[in-house]
Design a protein around this nucleic acid. Structure first.
Length: 262
DNA sequence: ATGGTTGTTGAACAA
């Protein structure tokens, strides 16, 4: 069973690419971010034609998240219950698997704009609220994966030019601490469980031919709980969709779970 | 060089 995440930067524009990718890459669940679609404009039928179901939290113009899944998503939760916010950044659903229920969360963490800005303060408050909520989710659902665009590059190795980015938004110490506080709950960055190519990134700015120069950041992550971690056998970044015509600025990250047979 | 690109909504904002 594969779990994937992809910030599509407008599902309206990227829907054909997402459908093509799903047809070539069957998954148990695909978490999407930045739908930029009103809640009732979600293209459920297009996914149904490929045999997928979906849970989503849509919003006009900005944000919006979804969990596309082979099986039905149950106990759907939208947004952080204790955080008063109209921005649609979280959707959670329970999926069944051979080892029992797995809680799958699609997260679109705030960008933060610039260190010290109002949006940056909002980002840090949002991460704190996410941590509080996740602690409860983990108690209720020990087998949990939270996938999404965290807008945090956790290590200097996740930054194409650490000197240039040093202290800036997406890499600043408070943001990395907020991300680390999630891991402290008993979550592991699945990408780092395995040998990976150097300079592996998941996002490249549209400007200045950043993708061709591999001037990117690794800000999209798959976090697996301690109970799920032993079943995770691979995690890769699929750069192919970033080469598409009219691509998203992000590319998918895909984790493999294997449940064995005996 | 405070530039540059894309998406949404309709000149500005967000990323």
């Amino acid at each position: 069973m594969k779990l994937a995440t992809w910030n599509v930067n407008s599902l309206k524009v990227r829907l054909p690419q997402v459908l093509d990718w799903l047809a070539a890459n069957p998954v148990g669940a695909l978490c999407l971010q930045e739908l930029k679609l009103d809640h009732d404009k979600f293209p459920l039928e297009a996914f149904a034609e490929l045999g997928y179901q979906a849970c989503w939290a849509g919003q006009k113009t900005y944000n919006g998240v979804a969990v596309i899944s082979k099986g039905e998503g149950l106990h759907v939760q939208r947004n952080l219950p204790e955080f008063d916010d109209h921005q649609q950044r979280i959707v959670a659903a329970t999926l069944s698997s051979p080892i029992g229920d797995i809680r799958v969360i699609s997260a679109y963490c705030p960008n933060g704009q610039a260190v010290g800005s109002d949006k940056y303060e909002y980002k840090l408050r949002w991460f704190a609220a996410l941590r509080e909520w996740l602690a409860g989710e983990l108690k209720q659902y020990p087998r949990l994966a939270i996938l999404g665009d965290y807008n945090v590059a956790p290590r200097d190795e996740d930054v194409h030019d650490p000197a240039k980015w040093k202290g800036g938004v997406l890499v600043s110490a408070p943001e990395r601490e907020a991300f680390g506080a999630l891991l402290d709950l008993g979550l592991t960055d699945a990408f780092l469980m395995f040998d990976q190519p150097e300079k592996s990134f998941s996002w490249w700015d549209y400007r200045q031919m950043a993708f061709r120069r591999n001037a990117g950041l690794r800000i999209d992550h798959v976090l697996v709980s301690d109970a799920l971690k032993p079943f995770c056998t691979a995690c890769i970044i699929d750069k192919e969709p970033r080469r598409n015509e009219q691509p998203s600025d992000h590319t998918p990250v895909v984790a493999t779970l294997e449940f064995g047979s005996a």
